[in-house]
Amino acid sequence: MTVSVTMTVNGKSVSATIDARTLLVQFIRENLQLTGTHVGCDTAQCGACTIHMNGRAVKACSMLAVQAEGASITTIEGLPGRDGKMHPMQEAFRDCHGLQCGFCTTGMVMAACQLVADNPKPSEAEIRAGLDGNICRCTGYHNIVRAVAQAAAQM
């Protein structure tokens, strides 16, 4: 069964006719070719697919594209400002060596933005608890936690 969807992604209106079972993350990756959003698991546990929908961080692997009908979506590609400069959270991840293989990074950055939006001055424990929905296998989180703290101070 096919359905048509329309949503705004990174400020641009997009429409497509898709198989009804298309997940939002598949729509973003395959239909829109925005491959910065990754799929690391199939149980909504790892958070590699985290995007912003209507200003909230969500896992794009655990919802259908049709559920995002009319929504405003931001992916990692849409996070830098109009001047092309990286978001302070992206800069902080680079400054603090908060990434290694890069696969979880885009979802981690999107989740971290939400964390700081909710709690502008998080403690280390609050940062760790706030990142509970995102798995990184490379960094041991030490430098991710530093990066989020640094970005929070700048945002």
């Binding site: 910065g36 992916t75 060596h97 990434l99």
Partner: peptide, 21 residues
């Protein structure tokens, strides 16, 4: 030195195998 590969990874421009069509 900060890592030069981070620019592409942080902006979603990395090219992992599944990103290639």
């Amino acid at each position: 030195l900060l890592r030069r590969e981070d620019q592409r990874f942080l902006t979603g421009a990395g090219q992992y195998t599944d990103d290639i069509s």
